[in-house]
Design a protein around this nucleic acid. Structure first.
Lengths: 129, 129
DNA sequence: ATCCTTAACAGGAATGATTCCTATTAAGCT
DNA sequence: AGCTTAATAGGAATCATTCCTGTTAAGGAT
């Protein structure tokens, strides 16, 4: 992998991701930082989000309404996604049982790198249409 | 919901989805059926896939390389997705424990509609670079 | 069997998220 | 201070998906 240099904008992006539980999209990250970094480019946001994910400092949660959502909290946990408003909420890690994934890997011929557990439904605010 | 009329093309799409375990993308469905339905339009594929999902006859598995993948098998089961070749494979249902999702729904304020468990990693063919 | 309403459709344009490209700037070693 | 090249802006390009318009056909009503 190439050398990673210091970058104030990337640092700010990571700080933003770590300081929220809202799992923002690239566009939302862009809009949040634009006031403080007027020269910020959307391409830079995408490039740095991709790099943070490669470095294991951020995670892609999944796409909501066609937009990828990002998470700066990398300790194992699961997510709830509201099918109406698109809100993404953290849940405690839901594990399918000790050693289960490894067993499946052997049985089906794969090596697991990550497990994602997502519950989709309606959040309290959206339940009553 | 509006009335649903009979449609040979939509029937063919559902039959295709039910007859494979490859979880094709819209583009792949289009290419598979185009020979038998020369007048088939990509827009029709997208429209009918969306409708099948609304009717609960098909499921969106998740996006791989920017393309949504579809599954015509609606009995609860989980998926493995290869991070290199994009292959999507079926796994037995991985459940986080009896009543667990309901309990979380009460605790965190949501009503679950679907649970997705996805394992990402490398399939046997892609393991050795 | 024919008429009517409107779902299904083709084909092409539009949208919109993401990536690519080119020239410029700036980390951070030497 | 000089050098290499990562980081960047800004805009163009890509590409999956959706939208739009006019046409066709499913299937109930006559």
């Amino acid at each position: 992998m190439a050398i990673v240099r210091q970058s104030k904008k990337r640092d700010a992006m990571l700080a933003l991701l770590r300081g929220t539980d809202r799992h923002p999209s690239a566009e939302q990250v862009y809009r949040a930082l634009k006031p403080d970094y007027p020269g910020l480019s959307l391409a830079t946001v995408y490039r740095n989000l991709a790099q943070l994910c490669e470095q294991g400092l951020a995670l892609r949660v999944g796409t909501v309404n066609g937009q990828e959502r990002y998470d700066g909290h990398t300790r194992p946990h699961s997510h709830f996604i509201c099918n109406r408003c698109g809100r993404v909420a953290d849940l405690p890690q839901l594990s399918p049982g000790e050693g289960c994934v490894e067993r499946l890997g052997v049985q089906y011929g794969f090596t697991a790198q990550r497990c994602e557990f997502v519950i989709r439904g309606l959040c309290k605010d959206c339940e009553d249409f």
